[in-house]
Nucleic acid binder design. Structure first.
Length: 419
RNA sequence: GGAGAGAUGGGUGAGUGGUUUAAACCAGCGGUUUACUAAACCGCCGUUCCUUAAUCGGAACCGCGAGUUCGAAUCUCGCUCUCUCCGCCA
């Protein structure tokens, strides 16, 4: 959410930002509603003030005058109620609209309409050259009994999977390694709840949007698609101490995604699944653009380092305007090389929000002058499983169908090769 | 799932329809006194919104949301959460 005062003072900037993100919204219309809101508020407060004043007099008045005053106040009350009803309606459309006003993308964000317009800003690693016909991860892992899609589909349905044997072992090895790697970068590990109240989907700006993207419980709660949701919710409605900032969390959680509307995409394999596990970096820091930018670069770099230590070729893209979420100011995606598909596939997403999320969640801190301010928030995938396995096994596959294990995982895996 | 109790400012905690525009104490901030510290005394001490250049002024907020009333922290209804006990359970 943006500050309505800021929107008022920068309506052209906000409108232009929405256009860059391909978000349809009429800021002028919002300002008309806001005028109405302020007008009603002023009028109502004036009447209440009068009511309060008379109310005090009523207590001291003689019985006859008292009755007269009460009768007078009945009239005031009636008109007050009418205006309050009107204000309530106005506030509803005001809030609906405020929730849909997107954050303004950074100057450095490229223009564009689809992910094809994302800008490659870094490439790393040598794409493997095979002296045999490389297989895709489905074939490699199925042959080595690391995964069972058929039974996965039998039990869960479309996009279901079992990770088993070395597939399960490899997942645990990656988790343990990730835990050590990111703990060394001064993050506090957190296993958060993943059944969350809907309010936190709004708070993180996943809503308003398509409710169909989320699994809901019969109690109206949602299954979080990322640890970002419960981690951001953790400090909602709180005033943090300046000395405790930045908050650096490493969330580990199952993630649930309905993938509604993606039925024809990635129907095979581990790229797109309904449930997976993810380590997520999340930072709450002081309200300074410089801090946000510095931490954004850092967390993206952390994940790049992690991937480099696994020796998997990747590139990093700067997302174009239309590929940004409602609250995001700027976003980097890290995409890993998938040999059989001959393309890069996203495994990480680093973004910062300024105070867009914290304003919705009411996460504040006292600055050095004792003033309350909304913190800044940012997050970045540390590592998603099983998606990471796709690139890992395809890049490390051998002619005989075995998979070499990246060196950093040896001690967690207990062996150097899966065969 | 069943029964009961509760939710008031940073903390403790009073307040059951109108001198409460939330008492008092503790903590915090400023000051007086003091050789210094302590103590004592005095003052300040919430958030959001509206108005304003800012001050001033005004409104709202006692878990959340409705309602009754001229007037609600206080009465009514719904919800959420916490605690205690019982049941079930990895």
């Amino acid at each position: 959410m943006l500050d309505i005062k800021f929107i008022r003072e920068n309506k052209d900037l906000v409108q232009a930002g929405a256009k860059k993100k391909n978000v349809e919204i009429n800021i002028e219309e919002l300002l008309v509603i806001d005028d109405k809101r302020k007008e009603l508020l002023t009028s109502i407060e004036k009447k209440r003030s009068e009511q309060n004043a008379i109310s005090e007099k009523i207590t001291k008045a003689t019985p006859e005058i008292r009755q007269q005053m009460i009768n007078d106040m009945k009239v005031v009350k009636e008109s007050l109620q009418k205006e309050e009803e009107f204000l309530k309606e106005t506030m509803k459309s005001w809030q609906d609209m405020m929730l849909r006003v997107p954050n303004i993308p950074d100057m450095s964000v490229p223009e564009g309409n689809t992910d094809k317009d994302n800008k490659e800003i870094k490439t790393w690693g040598e794409k493997p050259i095979f002296d045999f016909e490389p297989k895709d991860h489905v074939e490699i892992m199925t042959k080595l009994n690391m995964v069972d899609f058929e039974r996965g589909a039998k039990v869960h349905g479309f996009r279901g999977y079992y990770l088993m044997g070395d597939g399960a072992r490899l997942s645990f090895a990656i988790w343990q390694y990730a835990m050590e790697f990111f703990s060394n970068k001064n993050f506090i590990p957190v296993i958060p709840p993943t059944i969350v109240r809907k309010a936190f989907l709004y708070g993180t700006a996943h809503l308003p949007g398509d409710v169909e993207d989320f699994y809901m419980t019969q109690d109206g709660d949602a299954l979080a698609g990322t640890a970002e949701v419960p981690l951001m919710g953790m400090h909602s409605e709180e005033v943090l101490e300046l000395k405790d900032l930045p908050k650096r969390y490493l969330g580990f959680s199952p993630c649930y995604r309905r993938e509604a509307g993606a039925h024809s995409k990635d129907v095979k394999g581990l790229i797109r699944v309904h449930e997976f596990y993810k380590f997520e970096q999340l930072i709450l820091c002081e309200a300074s653009h410089e801090f946000s930018v510095a931490f954004h670069e850092e967390i993206n770099n952390n994940t790049e380092q992690f991937i480099e230590s696994l020796g998997i070729p990747y590139h990093t893209v700067l997302n174009c305007g239309a590929d940004l979420g409602l609250g995001q100011v700027k976003k980097y995606d890290i995409e890993l090389w998938v040999p059989k598909e001959n393309t890069y596939r996203e495994i990480s997403s680093a973004s910062y929000f300024h105070d867009f999320q914290t304003r919705r969640l009411n996460t504040r801190y006292k600055d050095s002058e004792g003033k309350l301010r909304y913190a800044h928030s940012l997050n970045c995938t540390a590592i998603p499983t099983p998606r990471i396995l796709v690139s890992l096994v395809e890049n490390y596959q051998q002619a005989d169908g075995s998979i070499k294990i990246p060196e950093v995982l040896h001690k967690y895996m207990g062996k150097n090769v899966i065969k």
